[in-house]
């Protein structure tokens, strides 16, 4: 890794870092030529506000965890628990700010529980968060009598959801601003602060991190709690958008978030997750899906298309990379 700092931009190795960008450009060009509406401002606005924001916020959380060498299979639980608590409090007549706060606190609890399992009971991140995923789905079933959605469509609640998901600030929808804030926060955390160095150390060699004086349990707790709280934000946005809490709906984010984060790793030469990479991965997935939809592929083929795209992009990206040793 050391000696190829000076390599030419035209080497295959360097080229491999740009494959995701090329793929994104190709997707944009192909769909803007083949469909009429793809490049319209309205469509782009729609994709970003409705598809990108939620997945991006969850993926930012996943990025922190993956950067620290772990994985969080319980992101969906954090998303859902925050929406559940938020909606339960609203329905019980509490004020919206309190509901939002309590929702985020519920997500925080999920993260803290993950941290407890991993630090105190020394369970692998994989198994710990998998266990939490199972427990979370039971909790939601029990709380909703088997999975009945909580819907709040009456006039009373409309202003709350209006403010959270339908309002605009300086010409951009509020959720986009929230995503921007989250991105900046995670960017600062991961790339500009000491915490980010610790996370990188944990991701590279946890043992070495420990012996270098990193307080591993404390940093790991932060990692899982940050991730869970970000998912909580996504949960509040999601439920406000559809004006209902739908049990287990957060699970849909899991695999896409993992995919987006790892697609993002293909953009750096040391294959580590970054904020910019993750956002790029999310955009690639969202615009690809939207483009296939506009071309008129049905949902089934879309899934095949996405799979093939990820496969080919990453095959190039990882395959072109110089072999270590």
């Amino acid at each position: 890794m050391m000696e190829d700092v000076r390599h030419s931009i035209f080497s295959l190795d360097a080229l491999s870092n740009y494959i995701v960008l090329f793929a994104f450009a190709a997707v944009m060009i192909i769909f803007s030529v083949t469909t009429a509406n793809f490049l319209s401002l309205e469509n782009i606005y729609n994709v970003i506000a409705n598809k990108v924001v939620l997945l991006a916020i969850v993926s930012l959380g996943m990025t922190i965890v993956i950067a620290a060498g772990g994985i969080d299979l319980s992101v969906g639980v954090s998303v859902d628990m925050s929406a559940l608590v938020f909606f339960s409090l609203l329905a019980a007549g509490f004020s919206a700010p309190l509901g939002v706060f309590a929702g985020l606190f519920a997500a925080f609890t999920v993260g803290a529980f993950n941290a407890f399992l991993i630090n105190k009971l020394r369970i692998d991140a994989f198994l710990a968060t998998l266990g939490v995923l199972f427990i979370g789905s039971s909790v939601q079933r029990l709380a909703t009598n088997g999975g009945t959605p909580i819907t709040l469509t009456t006039q009373e609640y409309a202003p709350v959801f209006q403010v959270i998901s339908d309002s605009q600030l300086l010409g951009l929808p509020t959720p986009v601003w929230i995503l921007a804030l989250c991105s900046i926060a995670v960017f600062l955390l991961l790339h500009k602060m000491v915490f980010g160095r610790y996370v990188a150390a944990l991701g590279a060699k946890p043992g070495v991190a420990l012996y270098s004086g990193v307080r591993v349990p404390r940093e790991l707790s932060k990692v899982f709690i940050y991730c869970a709280v970000l998912c909580g934000i996504a949960g509040i946005l999601l439920s406000s958008q559809v004006k209902s809490y739908i049990p287990l709906s957060g699970d849909a984010f899991l695999l896409d978030a993992i995919g987006a984060t790892f697609i993002g790793t293909a953009m750096t030469s040391d294959r580590r997750p970054t904020v910019v990479g993750t956002l790029m991965g999310v955009c690639l997935l969202a615009f690809m899906r939207n483009g296939l939809l506009l071309v008129g592929w049905n949902f089934f083929w879309q899934q095949v298309g996405i799979g093939v795209l990820i496969f080919v992009v990453l095959a190039f990206s990882f395959g072109l990379r110089k072999r270590e040793e």
Binding site: L255, G259, F262, Q303, V308, F311, L314
Partner: peptide
Amino acid sequence: LATLAVMNI
């Protein structure tokens, strides 16, 4: 990631 893509396919 590889198996995730194949899973989608």
